[in-house]
């Protein structure tokens, strides 16, 4: 009888261990903590070019993560990218004239939306639109502009002899 009990105990322990490992993977390793608690308010921002921005990219203000990108769409009339941001309701006093720009973390890192607070008293709320936006820096365009500048004059500053 004791032996049978031991066997059942071992199996029970095994199942508990396995489930605990799965829970650990879910809670500690993956981002499940941020799923399901999307109670943030939605703010829309229009960009000319969003570069490589992806859904789920972080939205930061002053480097602090305050929300994430929940939707990216194209306005068929104005050919602008429409980015929907979900912002944590804890940060409900962001000025309405805040500006959004698409930035890159590091040289090769992923792109995210950075907000710059404005100066107005009225706050952003669900459904507001960010008026001031700055598109993503597209490296090819930048290099292209540099090349045209180099060709069309502006000789490099002459070295003093």
């Amino acid at each position: 009888m004791a032996k049978k009990n031991n066997l059942e105990l071992a199996v029970g322990l095994f199942v508990v261990l396995g489930l605990a490992a799965l829970f650990l993977l879910a809670l500690k390793v993956s981002d499940i903590a941020s799923i399901g608690e999307d109670k943030g308010y939605r703010v829309t921002a229009r960009f000319e070019n969003i570069g490589g921005l992806k859904v789920r990219a972080p939205v930061t203000l002053g480097g602090v993560r305050i929300g994430r990108v929940v939707g990216i769409d194209l306005d068929p009339q104005r050919y602008e990218a429409v980015v929907i941001l979900s912002i944590d309701p804890r940060y409900d006093h962001l000025p309405e004239d805040s500006s959004a720009s698409i930035l890159t973390s590091g040289l090769l890192g992923e792109q995210y939306v950075g907000l710059e607070p404005g100066g107005m008293d009225s706050a952003l709320k669900n459904g507001s639109t960010l008026k001031l936006t700055q598109s993503a820096l597209v490296l090819e365009k930048l290099i292209g502009r540099m090349l045209t500048n180099a060709v069309s004059g502006d000789p490099p500053p002459a070295k003093t002899p």
Binding site: L22, L25, A26, K28, V29, S30, D31, I32, A33, I35, R56
Partner: peptide, 20 residues
């Protein structure tokens, strides 16, 4: 180590698809 892991590992696409 942990923060980067949590930021990049998605629950449904990675853990549910892969492990489960």
């Amino acid at each position: 180590f942990w923060a980067q892991m949590q930021a990049k590992v998605h629950f449904f696409t990675d853990v549910v698809n892969g492990v489960v």
